[in-house]
Design a protein around this nucleic acid. Structure first.
Lengths: 229, 229
DNA sequence: ACCGTAGGACTTGTTCAACAATCCCACAAG
DNA sequence: CTTGTGGGATTGTTGAACAAGTCCTACGGT
């Protein structure tokens, strides 16, 4: 087995510098608006209105829609339009079933040190943000922590799937009143999980994580079915 | 836990009857061509050529492209075109890292009987197909078996992610000479895994499955780096 | 009051033609 | 052998147009 000749990609560390296409930029902008809750669940995205507002053609906008539909952030109802996805209780349960399986398994069989480093960085960021009472950033750090947990498994595709899941979850976060209250109690728990994981106590870390997930799921389920129950 | 009220979706079994849009049908057609290997890895999909061949406009075709790019079956290089994705060794390893984590964890903590039923049906189909020497169908049954394993976890999103992963994997299957030889030895193993799972011997089933995955990964990695080594 | 229904306004689905931006290749110059 | 430099082909993006479908409303029958 001979060493492969160094390509420009390996030299440059695999970074790809390609200006995003208009559709990608539009998708990115809409994605941001959606996960930030500025476009709330169920909102219709009218083509003519949005395309003129963004200064792009309908065709380009429709390409952007396809991207976001593929990410489950928008739903497409033929001849009716595209809408910001609305999560129901089953969706939240489904997402947490996914997270429980993947995150707990990742912690139980650690394979990548990069994931641990991410977890460490996320805990630090969360502590710091809490000290400054920057609650929104605390939430960001919490998400980062769990993406880090997933990264412990060492699969790029798994990481990406998890990032997609979190984007979906934010649709539900928006329904939780006092979103900072959602993440605040988990700061210490994350730190504890990290410490166990670093000491090689994989099983205890995994168990603690499961408790976290059960708790978070219950909170969000309650928020989603909210006043209706 | 009370039973949820039956919605129209549950009554109708969740089937949604909406004629697919043209872009969706084009995407489906191309997806089929790709996973069947009729469009081999690296092939460029020229817009003008394809759109005239399919009798659709370039704009519609580009919407279809966005769908398939989102499924990682096509890659888009701005101003150069879209190409059928080419999997390298790292991709295969990444996919199998994903599968190991998810499938083994699913078997270890069974949560859905529907998954077991799928596994059973897949084993039966595989045996039957092998008896008829229908090797292609044996491969289909093998894939079905492992989607069934994933379904044991009980998350719709996880199932979908796994189906997407298998679509990608077929890009690599096409590189394996004698694809039926790839699946043939696993018929009995699948049956054995199923039996262990049904008897509640989750750990042993999970262990056996891990051996399967390691073996399959090695074969495909060898095929992908193939003649170059 | 309660359907059905027939319009009509509006939105989405799809195509087409055009132009701008970019890539690719062949060829010439150093 | 490397480095410009066209020019041709492909992709990126737009605007207009029409077909197809949905939603709303008013009308008529019962």
């Amino acid at each position: 087995m001979v060493a492969p000749p160094p390509t420009s990609a390996t030299i440059l560390g695999g970074v790809q510098l390609q200006r995003p296409t208009t559709a990608q930029r539009v998708a990115e902008l809409l994605r941001e608006r959606i996960v930030q809750g500025e476009l709330s669940s169920g909102t219709q995205c009218a083509e003519l209105q949005l395309s003129t507002a963004l200064g792009v053609s309908r065709n380009t906008l429709r390409e952007a829609f396809q991207i976001l539909v593929g990410e489950h952030l928008l739903v497409h109802e033929p001849h009716r339009g595209v809408f910001v996805r609305r999560l129901d209780v089953d969706d939240v349960r489904d997402i947490y079933t996914f997270r429980r399986l993947v995150e707990c398994a990742a912690l139980a069989h650690p394979a990548s040190a990069r994931g641990l480093a991410e977890m460490r960085a996320a805990v630090a960021q969360g502590m710091d943000a809490a000290a400054r009472e920057a609650w929104h950033e605390v939430g960001t750090a919490d998400v980062r922590f769990h993406v880090g947990v997933t990264a412990v498994a060492g699969s790029e595709r798994l990481d990406q799937a998890m990032r997609g899941l979190f984007a979906e979850l934010r649709l539900a976060f928006a329904l939780v009143p006092d979103a900072h209250e959602l993440h605040r109690p988990f700061l210490d728990l994350n730190a504890e999980i990290l410490e166990l994981a670093e000491r090689g106590q994989a099983d205890r870390a995994s168990l603690l994580l499961r408790r976290y997930l059960d708790d978070a799921e219950a909170r969000i389920v309650a928020a989603v079915q909210g006043p209706s129950s």
